[in-house]
Design a protein around this nucleic acid. Structure first.
Length: 585
DNA sequence: TTACCAACGTA
DNA sequence: CGTACGTTGGTAAC
């Protein structure tokens, strides 16, 4: 039974509107005697505008009663006060995320989402005001009381930080969000029930992202400091000291090339000249290009070591620690539920690209442990789902999918693995040719799906992921710097083939994450990191084993719901650890 | 000031 | 074995 939609929207001056959908009075479940305990869970059967604190309390009551699916323009805006108050919203509809699913890309302001949901031409969107001193029709003495213009578009400034709506306008703003959500749900339902489910889990992921931004990743500050010192040196006392440490690092490299001490190691052109002067002639100075020249001249090795230390010193150094790790020893950065291409989550401030060398510094706080879990071989398993290949699905029933594939092809496991990866990602070098032919014979449906995606990319035809996210090819890659149309086409083909797999995998991952969040909350567990196919959950140590079991169970659950069957098996490796570095691999 | 590139970290 | 992202410090264009 679908929960009724209730809009929760906020204005910048700390008011909020709670707006139930028409005819959908939200009543709490009846108590034992059939009576409704209105004192505990008051019904919401008419729109209200309340001061923010009061509105948050009201929502918390309705969340506890499980009485509604909350709708907002975007979790990061409207739901931020709920996250701040730690309201455990489980079911929501995020208009921005639903819009991104339906239309692809990243731009999903209320104005854009509204126009799309109502079939209005995007080109006719009224320009937003600049919000600066040159806006004479400014705000304070002229409260806005409508949100929909006579021409059908939303008022450009509605929802912006300088917006000052009347109560009536704020209610209308909530109704507009409900209108969008209803139209989006209908459009997604036409794509298939999977896409409505995807909107639900994408919305939950967006709420989770606000929580991740709030909570951060537990860090052992002392260990982090030691690791940084080991490669970047001690914390500089002042600017001069910082320059001295930097110059010392540089000198260790430049000592290998007397007479060229003035080379700027941070300037690739100068580095290339320096290398040429010792007989190392290269098109660029990337690591994998220089690696073979380690024996040619000692400066090559020194330079590569310098790069590693320089990376830690600049990107993950003392400044990074001071800036992004809070007094509560949590590393914080902004999270988004989907990128603009295939729909993976993104995170800032190093949360998604922390060097492995720093992982010992990611440590559970006292009284806690991590449950770390990652999805095994997720992309080939996702391929079996999206392509609907029964033979390939049979292979996913093994813990190690490559074993049955190797047996079928009559090749060794490493060959089978390379062939599958080559098929999915597009081989250009290497020698998996024979095994690739075997794959095409054994799994024609899966291979045909990949070929179809590639061809659509070449033709610039949009695609959809399994959950219905639009992969646009008209604008993406329009500026790829490759010479010749053929290379251009091939790049688009590879992008398309990758996006339908990577994007679909991201949808399953988010469904899993949302389920883990909901089913481990009562243990005091908290998701603290999402890394494409890996979850890190911070858990009170007495609940470690129970949480681990629930994380595994959550995958069975979300995979069954996501695929609508049990034909394709997904596997998770889940363990209880204290430091991220204890993870195997 | 803004835009882009090279380089490299993660999946 | 391809794709995606974020961050840094550099140059060049505005």
């Amino acid at each position: 039974m679908a929960a009724p939609l209730v809009a929760f929207v906020t204005s910048p001056d700390a008011r909020a509107a709670i707006v139930p959908a028409d005819g959908a009075a939200v009543r709490p479940p009846a108590g034992p005697g059939g009576s409704v305990d209105a004192g505990v869970h008051p019904a919401v059967d008419a729109a209200v505008v309340l001061p923010l604190g009061e509105a948050v309390r009201r929502v918390a009551e309705l969340v506890e009663a499980g009485a509604a699916r909350f709708t907002w323009w975007a979790a990061g805006i409207d739901a931020a006060p709920l996250v701040a108050a730690r309201v455990p919203v489980a079911r929501c509809w995020d208009v921005a995320e639903a819009h991104r699913l339906l239309l692809g890309g990243w731009d999903a302001s209320p104005q854009v989402a509204w126009a799309a949901a109502h079939g209005l031409d995007r080109g006719g969107l009224p320009p937003a005001s600049r919000g600066d001193l040159f806006d004479f029709h400014a705000t304070d003495d002229d409260p806005v009381d409508v949100v929909v213009r006579p021409d059908g578009y939303l008022v450009p400034d509605a929802g912006s930080p300088q917006w000052r709506p009347t109560d009536e306008a704020l209610v209308a703003w909530g109704r507009a969000a409900l209108d969008c959500a209803t139209a989006q749900a209908a459009a997604l339902d036409r794509l298939g029930p999977r896409s409505v489910a995807a909107a639900h889990s994408e919305s939950a992921a967006a709420y989770l992202c606000v929580e991740l931004t709030r909570d951060g990743l537990p860090i052992d500050r002392e260990v982090a400091r030691e690791l940084i010192e080991a490669s970047a040196g001690a914390r500089p006392t002042d600017e001069a000291d910082a320059r001295r440490i930097r110059a010392g690092r540089d000198a260790a490299v430049l000592a290998h090339t007397p007479g060229r001490e003035s080379t700027d190691l941070r300037n690739p052109v100068q580095v290339r000249e320096l290398l040429a002067s010792v007989g190392v002639v290269v098109p660029n100075t990337r690591k994998w290009v220089l690696e073979p020249f380690r024996e040619t001249h000692s400066v090559v090795g020194a330079l590569l070591e310098w790069r590693k230390a320089e990376r830690i010193a600049t990107t993950y150094g003392h400044t990074w620690l001071d800036t992004h790790v809070g007094p509560d020893d949590r590393l914080r950065g902004g999270w988004t539920a989907c990128d603009g291409a295939a729909g993976r989550m993104t995170a800032q401030n190093g949360l998604h690209n922390l060097p492995a060398a720093l992982r010992p510094a990611v440590a559970a706080h006292p009284g806690h442990v991590f449950v770390r879990a990652d999805l095994g071989q997720i992309e080939p398993r996702v391929l079996a789902v999206v392509a609907g290949d029964a033979s390939f699905a049979a292979a996913t029933r093994a813990d190690d999918l490559y074993a049955p594939v190797a047996a079928t092809l009559g090749v060794d496991r490493p060959v089978a693995k390379i062939a599958v990866l080559a098929a999915m990602y597009g081989q250009r070098s290497g020698a998996a040719g024979e095994a690739l032919k075997g794959l095409e014979r054994a799994y024609p449906v899966a291979m045909g799906y990949l070929d179809g995606a590639y061809a659509a990319g070449v033709r610039r035809e949009p695609l959809r992921t399994y959950g219905g996210r639009l992969i646009r090819l008209d604008q993406v890659l329009s500026d790829v710097p490759v010479e010749g149309a053929a290379a251009h086409d091939a790049a688009r083909g590879r992008f398309a083939r990758n996006a339908v797999i990577q994007g679909s995998a991201a949808e399953l991952f988010k469904a899993w994450a949302a389920t883990v969040r909901a089913t481990t909350r009562d243990l005091g567990a908290q998701i603290v990191l999402c890394l494409h196919d890996e979850l890190l959950v911070h858990v009170p140590e007495q609940h470690a084993e129970e949480a681990r079991a629930r994380v595994v169970a959550a995958l069975d659950d979300s995979a069954r719901r996501w695929t609508g069957s049990t034909q394709v098996r997904f596997v998770a490796d889940a363990s209880v650890i204290r430091r991220w570095s204890e993870a195997k691999e």
